[in-house]
């Protein structure tokens, strides 16, 4: 019976257990694909695939616990994203969330609500700078701590705190403009 503790899953994946590798992928694919999509990836699926390919290739060399692993995965995702930007040699474009998101359910109402949510999220994040958006995504979508966020972004914890503070202020202002009440 496969264990459910994240560190156990990680250890099993490192030792080559296929179920554990699949479990890591299932747990992280959503956050990773959302992160790269909202960060402006032209082909989020491809960037995510490249990310996991490298993760699983280098898994045996990774050392650390589940939290460190999560930060490591997003570090790789960010690098693959940069690679993609270099490949296309273009400015990062805002990608409409409706373009590539598959709704979870088959219910038309749920899909419509998801579309509305995507649009709203996209609109709110569009008012942030690239760094602010990255900090917000790493904190919320990737579920990383301040320390891990700072590590992935290659900045100090203090710098991430400042980015986060300004991002929050910008988001509050945007919410007011959009007339969204908490």
């Amino acid at each position: 019976m496969p264990g459910t503790d994240p560190d156990d899953v990680l250890a099993a994946a490192r030792s080559g257990e296929a179920w554990a590798v699949a479990r890591l992928y299932e747990d992280l694919k959503g956050p990773v694909v959302t992160f790269v999509r909202l960060r402006g990836a032209r082909d989020p699926d491809d960037v995510t695939s490249e990310t996991f390919l490298q993760v699983f290739r280098d898994l045996a060399r990774f050392e650390g616990d589940a939290a460190a692993f999560r930060a490591w995965v997003f570090t790789i995702a960010k690098r693959r994203l940069i690679d993609e930007h270099r490949r296309f040699s273009r400015r990062v474009r805002e990608v409409r969330m409706t373009a590539g998101v598959d709704a979870a359910g088959g219910d038309a109402a749920d899909e419509a609500m998801a579309e509305l949510g995507n649009d709203r999220v996209h609109e709110l994040l569009a008012g942030l700078t690239v760094d602010q958006r990255e900090a917000v995504l790493l904190r919320i979508v990737a579920d990383l701590s301040l320390h891990d966020t700072a590590q992935v972004m290659g900045r100090s914890v203090g710098a991430v705190k400042v980015l986060q503070h300004r991002a929050l202020a910008a988001l509050r202002a945007a919410l007011l403009v959009l007339g969204v009440t908490p």
């Binding site: 959503g30 999509r37 998101v101």
Partner: peptide, 12 residues
């Protein structure tokens, strides 16, 4: 945002 991440599908 969290729901978005949870719902997101990935075409491997």
């Amino acid at each position: 945002l969290r729901q978005l991440a949870a719902r997101a599908e990935h075409r491997a």
